[in-house]
């Protein structure tokens, strides 16, 4: 099977670039705010920030069509914002409030949106991958032409259930894109210390699944690769693997001091490869936008994020009756979509 790396730079319009800039910036600012609220004790438990990885979801969402599905792990805030979920509802879920997507009962790692076809938010490393293949199974069963993006990390790529899923997804030609977000560290373990072969995009070869490595710091190359993967799945050719090489600036979770890498390594990534700065540069040098235009966008994003933070503080805690609801369903909720 063809396993190739891509370097091609696609053409892109000013509107498109601006929209990528806006969406990535929203994730960045949202996550910074979430980190701040965590520091103030308003967000509890585990909180895994997506800062640095923004180009991955923004690029792939740009390749998706209405009705396509997505599912991911616990580092999920970026995915939710990128697929159009309301920042207020996401932030209020982080603070455990009634206005959150799961009424405060799911938290940072467990949110869902039927409307936006976002299927979680899963806390067990790798478990979302067979679930994602199952979503694709349902779509193939119904013959509706939809594809599913099943995201997981370089750490999850060593879970056994991933390979059970690769086998069945290829055997049954399921329309699922396996997106390996390789941020190089599985919590504190560098990829080289956990993974026998570095090229994760080749992990599907034994099952006949094509894969490619993608520069995950460049939103345009991500989108381009996403379009190839979507076309492959939509044509009924079965699953596709994208290993998107990215980097997380923050620790694994809020309580991770990230001593397993140097400050210089992080700084180098931030100053040379930052996905938002790259687009900002393109917008300015291509004269697609002025400093003032970008400032206006920054302000607009800041307002959205501040509003979500205010909402997440003002929304009340869930009513205590909620403890006892949503354990059993009377009807199938997703059937009434």
């Amino acid at each position: 099977m063809a396993a190739r790396k891509t370097t091609k730079k696609p053409n892109v319009s000013a509107e498109e670039l601006t929209s990528h800039y806006r969406e990535m910036l929203l994730i960045r600012r949202f996550e910074e705010k979430a980190g701040q609220l965590y520091g103030m004790g308003l967000i509890g438990g585990f909180c895994h920030l997506y800062i640095g990885q923004e180009a991955v979801v923004v690029g792939l969402e740009a390749a998706a069509e209405e009705g396509d599905k997505r599912i991911t792990s616990y580092r999920d805030h970026g995915h939710m914002l990128a697929c159009g979920m309301d920042p207020d509802g996401v932030m209020a879920e982080l603070t455990g409030r009634e206005g959150g997507y799961s009424k405060g009962k799911g938290g940072s790692m467990h949110m869902f949106s039927k409307e936006k076809h976002f299927y979680g938010g899963h806390g067990i490393v790798g478990a979302q991958v067979p679930l994602g293949a199952g979503l694709a199974f349902a779509d193939k069963y119904k013959g509706n032409g939809r594809v599913t993006f099943a995201y997981f990390g370089d750490g999850a790529a060593n879970q056994g259930q991933i390979y059970e899923t690769f086998n069945m997804a290829a055997l049954w030609q399921l329309p699922v894109i396996f997106v390996i977000e390789n941020n190089q560290y599985a919590m504190g373990t560098a990829q080289a210390r956990s993974t026998s072969t570095p090229e994760l995009f080749t992990r599907g070869e034994a099952f006949g699944i094509p894969g490619e490595a993608v520069d995950g710091m460049n939103v345009l190359t991500v989108k381009d690769a996403g379009e190839r993967a979507v076309a492959h799945c939509r044509a009924g050719k079965g699953p596709y693997i994208l290993e998107v090489k990215t980097y997380r600036y923050r620790g694994h979770s809020m309580s991770d001091p990230a001593k397993y890498r140097t400050r210089e390594e992080v700084q180098k990534m931030r100053s040379e490869r930052d996905p938002i700065e790259q687009v900002r540069e393109m917008l300015l040098t291509g004269k697609h936008a002025s400093e003032d235009d970008l400032k206006a966008i920054d302000k607009e994003i800041k307002d959205i994020v501040n509003k979500s933070a205010d909402f997440s503080k003002e929304s009340p805690e869930p009513h205590l009756d909620e403890l006892w609801t949503d354990i059993y369903a009377e009807t199938i909720p997703q059937h009434s979509a």
């Binding site: 599905k69 599912i71 299927y119 478990a127 991958v129 067979p130 679930l131 994602g132 293949a133 199952g134 979503l135 694709a136 199974f137 349902a138 779509d139 069963y141 119904k142 056994g160 259930q161 059970e164 899923t165 086998n167 069945m168 055997l171 199938i332 997703q334 059937h335």
Partner: peptide
């Protein structure tokens, strides 16, 4: 295939997907 963990997960995902 003989792969309980995987097919149980796929089946659960298909239930989320409406089956």
């Amino acid at each position: 295939p003989i792969t309980e963990h995987g097919f149980a997960g796929i089946a659960v995902g298909s239930a989320f997907g409406g089956l």
